[in-house]
Simulated scan of single mutants.
Amino acid sequence: MTRAAEVRFENVTKRYGGTAKAVNDVSFTIPAGTLCTLLGPSGCGKTTTLRMIAGLEYPTEGRVLIGGKDVSALPPAERDVSMVFQSYALFPHMNVLENVGYGLTVSRQPKAKVREAARAALDSVGLSGFEERLPSELSGGQQQRVAVARALVLEPSVLLFDEPLSNLDARLRRRMREEIRDLQQRLGVTVAYVTHDQAEALAISDKIIVMNQAVIAQEGTPRDLYEAPANAFVAGFVGEANRLPATLSHRQGDMAQVTIGSATLSLPHRGAAEGAVQLAVRPEAVELLDVADPATTLRGTVAKAAYLGGLMEYTLTTEAGDVFVIDSHTQRQRGVGEVVGLGLGQRGIAVLPA
């Protein structure tokens, strides 16, 4: 495996038809040897960004650098990157070994070297012994591994994934994302990974870049984005979040008093001015209590309750609005119409900057 390379975008814009901007003045850095996820809804620009790393699209403005080298105008073959597509794009008439070695074969490498490299790549993804099978004889997860092995055999400094798990069922997706993360850490390759699945991004990433309407809404570690969302869009897109009206007062240092309903909390103000604000409250950050202390809790009435095996989901009506709550205490199930207290701490609650 070649040495991992840093990927850097400098004020990159991609236009189609002269005016429509698929990506608008985007700058970011993916450190070498890390896994960075481009996350966002359909049409936000994340796949176009990935294709500009691959060389399948070229920027209208700005620069794309890989390993410190400006590759903005270089074709894919000269970028030292490999891409795993959403469809896997395996050749149905070739067996697994031939599929994995295809890139080396078309570059006219000796047959013995191609076979050796392809077998090593298959071994790295746990598919030794599958060399003679056709793609039609493999499960979805196995086909995905073959696609990864085909990308790895070229020894890229950057490995690109375009929603590689979208064709798999939920249980297999969880297992495959763990395998991709393990492979990236074991090989130390730089990975740029596109998905619209928030749980997938949180589970595997060193860094997440959230995109919305062709620009970066926020970038940071999974914990940064989940616990300190920069705006309402990020709060709602990265995991679940209740957005509730509140009043901020008495700023002192980094902290301020925040009143929500009859309850008053001490929270980091995150630059918000005194006055009306919004809070992002994670569903699992709310503790359901039998007795509501007006000074520290909201009073709520259970409007909906759903048992999901290992947890309960509730919707509660409060003076601050409806609140969605996830409760792991399934032995104590709350009934519709029951009045409870909603305990609010500091963790999982963030003031949304204006």
Rank of each mutant, 00 (worst) to 15 (best):
E178I: 11
V340Y: 00
G253S: 09
F9W: 06
A151G: 09
Q346Y: 14
M255H: 10
F233E: 06
G55R: 05
G45D: 09
F161T: 08
P156D: 08
D322R: 14
F85R: 02
S124C: 10
F233W: 02
E313H: 15
D70T: 00
G335Q: 15
E98Q: 12
D293G: 07
G261E: 04
L288R: 02
F324M: 10
G261M: 07
I349L: 12
A292E: 05
G337R: 07
L289G: 00
V84W: 07
A273Y: 10
V84L: 11
E219F: 03
G40W: 03
V238R: 13
Q143I: 00
Q331C: 08
D162N: 10
F85E: 04
T330C: 14
A32W: 02
L288N: 01
K46M: 09
E274F: 04
Y58M: 14
A276D: 06
T247K: 06
V194D: 10
E240T: 15
A120W: 13
S82L: 01
A22E: 03
A285R: 04
Y102A: 11
L38N: 03
A246E: 00
V340A: 03
Y88H: 09
E98P: 04
T318M: 00
L152V: 11
K304Q: 15
G343H: 03
P164Q: 13
N242T: 07
A273F: 09
A54E: 10
K113N: 15
V114E: 11
E178C: 13
A295S: 14
I349M: 11
T296I: 02
L74D: 13
R145Q: 06
L308R: 01
D70R: 00
D293C: 10
L265S: 11
R150M: 08
A263I: 00
S124W: 06
K69L: 11
Q252F: 05
T37C: 15
V238Y: 08
G239I: 13
L172Y: 07
L122S: 12
L267Q: 01
G300D: 02
S128H: 09
R51S: 12
G126W: 02
R282L: 01
S157D: 08
V146L: 01
V339A: 13
L127K: 04
V7E: 01
R8D: 01
L267P: 01
A232P: 10
N231M: 08
E10D: 13
A77M: 13
L38F: 12
R173P: 05
P283Q: 03
R79K: 10
Q86P: 03
D162A: 12
P92N: 01
R51N: 13
D322C: 05
A89D: 02
K69G: 09
T49Y: 05
V286C: 06
R332A: 05
V125L: 08
L160C: 06
P222M: 11
T190M: 02
H250P: 12
A280N: 02
E61I: 14
L289N: 03
T264I: 09
V302K: 00
S205Q: 05
K14W: 13
S82R: 00
R177F: 07
A112M: 06
G103W: 04
C44R: 01
T105W: 04
G261I: 07
R332Q: 10
V291P: 00
S82M: 02
